[in-house]
Each structure stands twice: as structure tokens, then as C-alpha cells.
Amino acid sequence: MTTTDSSTAQGKKITLRIWRQPNAQTAGSFVEYQPKGLADDMSFLEMLDILNEELLARGEDTVSFDHDCREGICGSCSLMINGRAHGPNEGCTTCQVHLRSFRDGDTITVEPWRARAFPVIKDLVVDRSAFDKIIQAGGYISVNTGGAPDGNTIPVPKLISDQAMDAAQCIGCGACVAACKNGSAMLFTSAKISHLNLLPQGKAEKDERVLNMIAAHDHAGFGACSNTNSCEAVCPKEIPVTFIAKANRDYAWALLKGKQPTLGQKEVESA
């Protein structure tokens, strides 16, 4: 966390350079704003709320941005802040960044996630439905409701269970993609694969899962992973890149066993 400045009576001075783009078809550009009445204990998104109040009062279109829970778990918020996904703090989503992390007089550049697989919808809002497609390709255990055995039937060693939990923490925000120079979603995809492949319940579909989900990842237009680890550095849930290694291992094993993705190109598209 950077140093804290005391806010003046007029409030903290911050200049925002925000990416404005009316819709997917129209080119965008940066516009500068200086919202008033800012304070250290305000969250970054509350600053945008204040800016939007000012814009409404001036009769201008408000800045669109995705947000919902504002407590760091829903994965909706998604801003590049000064070139860093989710801003300056580690292990933290944009909604949890507070103005005490910036100095009085700072200029802050705010952009949407930029990746081929995440087209801009408007301003800072992008379409992340490609993540849903990856899950639809195999990010589940095929059990219907009803008929599940007693929860304690299959003991899961605590170590394995904890590892699965570490992977399962992923909130699907897309920061890993935004940070990656290849626009790869391998941290997301591998975390989802690992969560299920580690657990005994997920073993039955282990090979198909890894092959299909990676096929869906590639098909959605995400780039390949070249192990720069920039994803790990910005992940708000601090998911380690070792899960990418694990998914790659599962992938290689599946191929060695002679398995192929069971989803054809057409099914991946419709998934």
C-alpha cells in the first residue's frame, strides 16, 4: 500500500483519464475528469459514483462500469488502473481499492480489460461470456440432483481438499487475461480444472474435462500461456501459477492416454 495523504477540506485532488467508448462499434478515447469531494476512506468505485453524479448534473452520459457486490467476491468489477489490473494493491479487486492508496494530485488512467476474447460493450464494460463457455465445456461434475451418496462416504484428505479450495477461490473476474500479454486465460481455466480434477468426485471426468476446457479456451480466442506469470501478480485471490503447470500435466497425461476432446468444434462453439 502506498503512503496515505491527509485529505484537504476541498477533498483529495485526483485527475482521472477514463476510457470512454459509446458502444462496440464506435472508436473510444480517453477523457479527463476531476471529481470533487474525494476522501481517503472512499473506495475507487465510490469515486466513480461521485463522478457520475457530476456527469448527470452536467447532462452528460455517465461512465459505465461493471460492479455489484463491492466486497471483492462477485468478480464483476474489472478496471485497468494505471496499467495494472485491479489497481495498485495486491490480492485485491478494484472495489476494495481505496483512495488512501493514491497521492493527492495523482493522475490515474482507467481502462477496460483489453483482450480479443473480451470485446468492449461500452466505456469500461467488457463482455466476459467467454469464461462461461469454458465452464460449459466441462467445468462441472456430471451429477444430477438427487441420489448423491452421504457427504462423508468419500473421505478427502485435508491437504487435497485445501488445494482444491485454493483453486476454487477464483472469482472469474478476468484480471489474469487483462494482465497477460498473450491475452491468455490459462490461470482462470487451470484453476477451474484443478479444483475439480484434484477431488475424488471429479476424477471420473478428469481427462475429458481438461481437454474440453482447454479446447474451449483456445476457441474463444484467448492466447497461449508463455509462463510470464503476470496473471499471478494481479490475481485478486492470489491463485498461484502452479495450477497452470498442474493443468498442463493433466492435459499431457490425457493426450498420452490417447484421449481427444469429446467436444467437436461445433459443440465448443455452441457450448
Binding site: 462441472y140 461434475i141 448423491a148 457427504g151 473421505p155 478427502v156 485435508k158 481438499s161 479444483h195 477431488l199
Partner: peptide
């Protein structure tokens, strides 16, 4: 149902 789906509930050392 949730265990069967792979929800990683907290566990004791015995599993």
C-alpha cells in the same frame, strides 16, 4: 448434493 458436485467444504485431517 453439494459434496457430489465438488464443493470443497472444509475437512478434518481424517478426510
Amino acid at each position: 448434493q453439494c459434496v457430489a458436485q465438488g464443493v470443497p467444504f472444509a475437512r478434518e485431517y481424517g478426510g
